[in-house]
């Protein structure tokens, strides 16, 4: 089933994530998982593998309380951390001008 995802403001979302609100995690996950899957798929090439990585990424951020120390915009944090993870796991892509 597909539901319309309510758009959450990043600053509020991050504030709630810092306090350890599980619903905030769910909101961020629902809002950004497709975006991050697009990113991960580009690096890993395998969609199923990329999806598992994105899911595990959110769980791990939660488990390790990573949001607590985030001082950059939420999306910047998610993008950088996830791409870092893809790099460890997958094919590296070098892009030249």
């Amino acid at each position: 089933m597909k539901r319309k995802v309510e758009q959450h403001n990043d600053k509020q979302l991050l504030r709630r994530l810092r306090t350890g609100d599980p619903n905030a995690l769910n909101d961020a996950y629902r809002q950004y998982r497709v975006w991050l899957l697009v990113v991960a798929t580009t690096y890993l090439t395998d969609e199923a593998e990329a999806k598992t990585l994105v899911e595990d990424f959110f769980i791990e951020c939660w488990d390790k309380n990573l949001f607590k120390d985030v001082r950059v915009p939420l999306r910047t944090f998610l993008f950088k951390t996830l791409t870092e993870r893809c790099k460890k796991q997958g094919i590296q892509i070098n892009m030249y001008p």
Binding site: Y43, D56, K87, I93
Partner: peptide, 25 residues
């Protein structure tokens, strides 16, 4: 972890995408 193979990423370390170009995977 559901799979134990991931380690915590150093958030600001390194860059994946160094400059523009084109690729397809």
């Amino acid at each position: 972890h559901r799979f134990g193979k991931y380690t915590v990423a150093a958030v600001l370390a390194g860059l994946l995408v160094s400059s523009a170009g084109l690729y397809f995977l």
